[in-house]
């Protein structure tokens, strides 16, 4: 299993063979291939968008506000329509990808790493830590995220970094509790017990035996959390305690388009659609990954792959 993991997770390695296997496995799952391409586009937007389109995306035109979509007469940038200040929505979505991805990826990764590490400790340890850490999760869970946001952003600037901080803290308990629950179960399984009897070290048991078992669940939650974090950031903006203009994120665009939902639907529809598509793609890709990583499941892809090549 760990072999397979290395093979898939490091396709950038010079060994062309491994990369080809990975790509072949991906090609076998058509929806996952589309998803991967879409995500690649989003990442490219996030990296190069601000450089290329910053100027165009912030140029306002009050008299041409809320321009309807699919009107090529005004140039390709306005194909998705104009926003409430007459800025081209397409350009804004591209530019906003950068902040959005930074916030979503930052918050999800941070909460996932911290949460599952704490969860591992809590689940594996039979001592005090096993008792105390879940209570920490209780406290965070009952601390309203809105209050946390108000506190952090009242004292610090509403910057990307601080939004990540707020969102990461509030999402820690999910990972912590899920990991702990899984570990509680897995550590009682025969093979872990066997490893223990054979004198395997604790890190070895955790990383070689327990981690691979709980990773799929954590990844499922993390990909869904991506959407959650983007939308949570949107509601923070809406309540006035998130990212504020002139900064822009998809969530902020969705929130700002809300009053126009019945009169100019495209203002919040397009950024919302991008959020949905991103989540969908991440999920398709993660579903593919769990199959590709699981030796007992991989035949599904290999079979399909052979048929298609």
């Amino acid at each position: 299993m760990t072999m397979a993991e290395q093979r898939i997770l490091s396709p950038a390695k010079p060994e062309a063979g491994r990369l080809r296997t990975a790509l072949k496995l991906l090609w076998a799952d058509k929806p996952a291939t589309v998803a991967a391409v879409f995500l690649l586009v989003i990442v490219l937007c996030a990296v190069f968008g601000p450089m290329l389109l910053e100027q165009v995306s912030s140029r306002q035109n009050l008299r041409g506000r809320n321009a309807p979509p699919f009107d090529l007469a005004k140039g390709w940038l306005l194909i998705l329509g104009g926003d409430q200040l007459g800025r081209p929505l397409l350009a804004r979505i591209v530019v906003a990808a950068s902040n959005t991805m930074a916030i979503a990826a930052g918050a999800v990764l941070a909460s996932m790493l911290i949460g599952s590490a704490l969860g591992l400790c809590a689940g594996y340890s039979r001592g005090r830590a096993g008792d105390l850490i879940p209570r920490l999760a209780d406290v965070i869970m009952s601390f309203p995220s809105l209050l946390l946001a108000v506190i952090v952003l009242y004292m610090l600037e509403p910057s990307v970094g601080n939004i990540i901080l707020v969102l990461a803290i509030t999402r820690i308990p999910v990972y912590l509790r899920t990991t702990r629950a899984e570990v509680l179960e897995v550590r009682e399984r025969m093979f872990v017990q066997a490893a223990l009897v054979m004198g395997a070290s604790t890190p070895r048991i955790i990383f070689r035996h327990i981690m691979p078992m709980i990773l799929p669940t954590i990844l499922t939650i993390a990909t869904l959390d991506f959407a959650f974090v983007m939308l949570a950031e949107s509601s923070l903006s809406f309540l006035g305690i998130g990212i504020q203009p002139p900064e822009v994120t998809w969530g902020l665009m969705v929130a700002q388009g809300r009053p126009y939902l019945t009169t100019a639907w495209w203002l919040s529809f397009w950024p919302g659609l991008v959020i949905i598509l991103t989540t969908l793609s991440l999920n398709l890709l993660s579903n593919w990954m769990r199959i590709a990583l699981d030796p007992t499941q991989r035949w599904r892809l290999e079979m399909g792959g052979r048929k298609n090549v």
Partner: peptide
């Protein structure tokens, strides 16, 4: 209604008029 958009538009107008403007939107307590 539209206060955020009005402020964004004002920022641009001031910038076009030669000013160096930083816009910040805050909730009422601040």
């Amino acid at each position: 209604p539209n206060v955020t958009e009005v402020m964004e538009a004002l920022q641009q107008m001031f910038t076009d008029g030669g000013f160096n403007i930083k816009l910040q939107m805050v909730e009422v307590a601040e």
